[in-house]
């Protein structure tokens, strides 16, 4: 296995049941353009998200993140907005599947979710399943990402992984 996958950024924190209608409202589902989807990411739950997000930032949320529709546009908009990872207590299953498939790292890490606050700078080591809170100087452990999932993420998604080249 190559070097660990480590992601670092500022936290944008939300509660439970953030749903796909809030992540990318249906009024934008008439396009598959990643850049347009990115411009409307999280629009119906946090209209300033797109203004505030910086490449590498990390979304942290409580339970059942991504519930609702099967629209892959939701994780695509998050990834295209520059978010490097999503951490939550739990994810809706279709969102989980879609995120891995498009190469958006997501991690279930309840200890981190409990302690991390909006605006904290954190570092996520996916390969080891460790979240470090640089602001608070704390460390929280979770499960390491399975190796095949790390490879999917590094290949930019399932199809990159299957065809063995970055898409």
């Amino acid at each position: 296995m190559a070097a660990d996958i480590v992601l670092k950024g500022k936290v944008h924190k939300y509660g439970s049941n953030v749903n796909t209608d809030e992540i990318i409202p249906a009024r934008y589902l008439n396009t598959t353009d990643h850049e347009i989807l990115a411009k409307h990411c999280m629009e119906d739950i946090d209209k300033d998200f797109v203004k505030n997000v910086v490449k590498g930032d990390i979304i942290v949320a409580e339970n059942n993140f991504g519930c609702g529709s099967s629209r892959e546009h939701a994780p695509i908009s998050i990834k295209a907005a520059g978010v490097s990872a999503v951490i939550a207590n739990s994810f809706a299953r279709i969102f989980f599947r879609n995120s891995i498939n498009i190469g958006l790292p997501i991690l279930e890490a309840p200890d981190a979710v409990k302690a991390v606050e909006n605006g904290d700078i954190i570092e996520v080591n996916l390969s080891k399943g460790i979240v470090t809170n640089i602001t608070k100087k704390e460390t929280y452990s979770s499960h390491p990402f399975p190796e095949f999932m790390q490879k999917i993420i590094q290949s930019g998604g399932l199809f990159g992984y299957i065809s063995g080249k970055e898409l």
Binding site: E72, I94, F159
Partner: peptide
């Protein structure tokens, strides 16, 4: 069960 577009492509 529901899946995403990439799964359907596969």
């Amino acid at each position: 069960t529901g899946v995403g577009s990439t799964d359907i492509a596969a």
